[in-house]
Design a protein around this nucleic acid. Structure first.
Lengths: 232, 232
DNA sequence: CACTAAGCGGAAGTCAATCTTCCGTTTGTT
DNA sequence: AACAAACGGAAGATTGACTTCCGCTTAGTG
C-alpha cells in the first residue's frame, strides 16, 4: 500500500481549525450543528470542510473522543477522593454541570451514536470507572443499593431536557434539580423503586444513528391509554 | 355588528374532527405536528383545515384548554385525598405518567405558549391548586419545606427530556426516575439546596412563542467556562 | 523564481419538509 | 333546482440543510 500522502501545511492548520470549531458548536447547540455553521465558525469554506471530512461522523467521532476524555478525567479525579459519597456526589454534580456548558456531553455517556472501535473503547472505560464509583459509594458511601449506572444515564437525559428548555434563561434550574435528586440517592427512607430498563435495553435504546435524526412520523401510536388513570 | 354567520353542518363536523385529530397528533409527537399530518389524521384536506384555522395558534389553544382541564381534574382528584403526602405523590406520579402518553402535557404546565386570556385562566387555576397541594404536603405530609411549584415545573422538563429520548424504547425509564426523585422530597436527611429560579424567572423563561420554534444559531455563546471545574 | 499540484472558497444545484394559496368540484340549505 | 358555502388536494413558495463543482490561490520544490 502506498504511504499516506502528506497533507500540505495549510491543510493541516485548517483541519485543526475545523475540529476546534466543531467542538465549539457541538458544545453550543448539540451535535446537530449544521455543516455550514461549523465552516463559518472555523473560518473556512464548506468545500474545505467537506474535502477534509466527507462524512460528518468522522467529525463527530473526533469531537466525541475529546469529550469522552474529559469525562474520564473527571472520573479519575473523583475516584481519587477518599470519601466514597463525596466522590460520587462530586461526579454527578460536575458531570451535570458540564452538560450545561457542553450539550454534547450527554451524548457521550448516553451514546446516541454509531459505535466506532475508538469510541467503544472510551465508552467502556467510562462505564467501568463509573460503575466502580457507584459500587464504592454503595458499599461505603450510603448510596442506595438499587441505584445503577442506568440511573445515571437517565439522569443525564433528564438534565438534558431541562437544559434544552431553559438553560439560557434559568442557569440555576439544572443545578438545583440535580442537588434535589441527589438527596434521593442516600439510603434512608427508601421507597420500593419500579424496575428500570436493563443495561441491555438501555444500550439498545440509546443506539441511534447520528446523521439524519429526523424522525418522520410515529407510524401508528400506542393505543392511547386513558389519560387519568386512577391516582395511586 | 352582524350576527356570526352560521357554519354549515358539514363544516361543524369537520371542525370537530380536526380538533380531535390535533389532540391525537399533539399527544403523539408534541405540538410541532405538521398541518398536513393533522389534516390527514382528520380525514380532511389541508385547505379545509386552513379555512377553519388560518392560524395554528387557535388550534393549539383549543387543544391546550382540553389538556389543561385534564390536569385540573387530576388535581381535584388528588386534593380530595385525605393523606397529604399520598395526594402529592399521586399527583406527581400521575402527571409524569400522563406526559408519557401525551407529549403536550408538559407544555400546558410549563407553558411555552403565548398566553391567551382563556389559557391564562386555566393555568392560574392549575397553579393555584398545585400550590395548595404542595402547601398541604409541606405542613402535613412531610414534604421538604424548600420544595416549590417551580420544582414541579423543572421536574416536568426533566421528564420530558427522558421521554423525548427514550420513551418509545424504554417505557419504564421515566417512572423509575420519577419514583427515585420523589424519594428526595420527603424531609429526612436534607441537603442545602442551591436556590432555583424565582417564580417570575420561571414564568418568563418558559414564555416562548409557539410557532416557528426554530432557533437560528445562538448568537454569541457564553464565555465557555473551563469544563472541568475542580469537583466539589 | 517559477511551476505545479494540492488546496481553497463559496456559488449553485439538490433535496426534503413544511406552509400557504387557489380553483374546479361537491354538498348543504332554502 | 339553484346558489353560496365548503371541500380537497395539486401546485407554488419558502426554508434549511447537504453536496458538488470549478476557477482561483498558495505551499512546496527544483
Amino acid at each position: 500500500m502506498p504511504p499516506p500522502p502528506r497533507l500540505r501545511s495549510d491543510a493541516v492548520r485548517n483541519r485543526e481549525r475545523i475540529l476546534t470549531a466543531a467542538k465549539t458548536l457541538f458544545a453550543r447547540v448539540g451535535m446537530q450543528a449544521s455543516v455550514e455553521d461549523i465552516a463559518r465558525e472555523a473560518g473556512v469554506g464548506v468545500g474545505t470542510l467537506y474535502r477534509r471530512f466527507p462524512d460528518r461522523t468522522e467529525l463527530i467521532e473526533a469531537v466525541f473522543l475529546d469529550r469522552g476524555q474529559a469525562c474520564l478525567d473527571l472520573l479519575t479525579q473523583c475516584l481519587a477522593q477518599s470519601d466514597a459519597w463525596q466522590a460520587f456526589h462530586a461526579y454527578v454534580t460536575t458531570l451535570c454541570a458540564m452538560q450545561e456548558q457542553d450539550r454534547s456531553i450527554a451524548d457521550v455517556l448516553t451514546l446516541t451514536l454509531p459505535p466506532s472501535p475508538a469510541i467503544q473503547r472510551v465508552r467502556t472505560g467510562i462505564f467501568h470507572a463509573q460503575n466502580q464509583l457507584i459500587a464504592r459509594a454503595r458499599t461505603n458511601g450510603g448510596l442506595r443499593p438499587d441505584f445503577t449506572g442506568e440511573d445515571v444515564a437517565t439522569l443525564l437525559l433528564a438534565n438534558a431536557g431541562i437544559i434544552a428548555a431553559v438553560a439560557d434563561k434559568l442557569p440555576t434550574a439544572s443545578a438545583r434539580f440535580v442537588a434535589l435528586h441527589l438527596d434521593s440517592l442516600r439510603t434512608g427512607e427508601l421507597s420500593e423503586l419500579p424496575a428500570g430498563p436493563t443495561p441491555e435495553q438501555m444500550l439498545a435504546a440509546l443506539q441511534r444513528p447520528v446523521t439524519s435524526q429526523r424522525v418522520p412520523v410515529p407510524p401508528a401510536g400506542r393505543p392511547t391509554l386513558p389519560l387519568l388513570s386512577e391516582p395511586e
